[in-house]
């Protein structure tokens, strides 16, 4: 059964009289446990598509079903609930809270969660998964770029999401550290996590099981990686 089902999805930005189509009628499904890379040059609509899939933005037309729920009919609170319970985000710029410890950053999604459990335990476990147990009480300005992105991954993992969105997660890192991050994502996929990776880098995209290639808002290819 599909976790994500996209039918004829359109997204157009309006700025006064000017219409800028970003995604032009794309359709695809993503199943549980897949590791999909959405690839394309800048301006191809890949980030826009990820924002819609991540329920951060709404499509102009077409249908998007996440876990069999039509995104069109969800209100702001329901969207926030789904983002909190079912999704994890990793951004290019890390987006960690400044002047806050690693542990507190990872705990952040739990403060908005309605589930009852020990926040510290949960956050420590997620940090152990990214091998950062030795950095719990560091402030986010005291750790390296690669460590920051691992903290961000731990934060995405902490609430046991159904899917992790990673938007150019290696974009701000050197190639060696980038490789480490991709390996972590791969490992997470092997242990059953569904991952959508947005990137413009062919080498990085190769680590996924399937690549959806976008250009000018259209899917030009959608095939598995050998």
């Amino acid at each position: 059964m599909s976790l994500i089902e996209v039918k004829n999805l359109d997204k157009t930005y309006y700025s006064g009289e000017i219409e800028t189509p970003a995604v032009k009628g794309v359709s695809f499904n993503i199943n549980k446990g897949e590791f999909v890379a959405i690839m394309g040059p800048s301006g191809s609509g890949k980030s826009t598509l990820m924002h819609i899939l991540g329920l951060l933005d709404k499509a102009t037309s077409g249908e998007y079903f996440f876990d069999d729920q039509n995104a069109k009919y969800l209100n702001d609170n329901e969207l926030a609930f789904l983002r909190n319970e079912k999704m994890g985000f990793v951004f290019q710029a890390f987006n960690l809270l400044p002047r806050t410890t690693v542990l507190d950053n990872v705990k952040l999604p739990l403060t908005y969660s309605k589930k009852e459990f020990d926040h510290n335990e949960k956050a420590k476990k997620a940090l152990a998964d990214v091998e950062l147990s030795n950095r719990l009480d560091y402030y986010t300005n005291e750790i390296s770029g690669g460590e920051k992105q691992r903290v961000a991954i731990a934060r995405a993992l902490v609430n046991d999401p159904s899917i992790i969105f990673a938007d150019e997660p290696t974009g701000n890192l050197d190639s060696k550290t980038g490789k480490q991050i991709i390996n972590i994502l791969q490992k997470l996929n092997e242990t059953g996590n569904t991952i959508i990776l947005v990137t413009h880098d062919k080498e990085i995209a190769k680590h996924a099981n399937r690549i959806i290639h976008l250009k000018d808002g259209l899917i030009i290819s959608d095939e598995p990686v050998e």
Partner: peptide, 10 residues
């Protein structure tokens, strides 16, 4: 933005 992305509502 981050807080909203990780599940904070309005």
């Amino acid at each position: 933005g981050l807080r909203k992305a990780i599940g904070a509502n309005n």
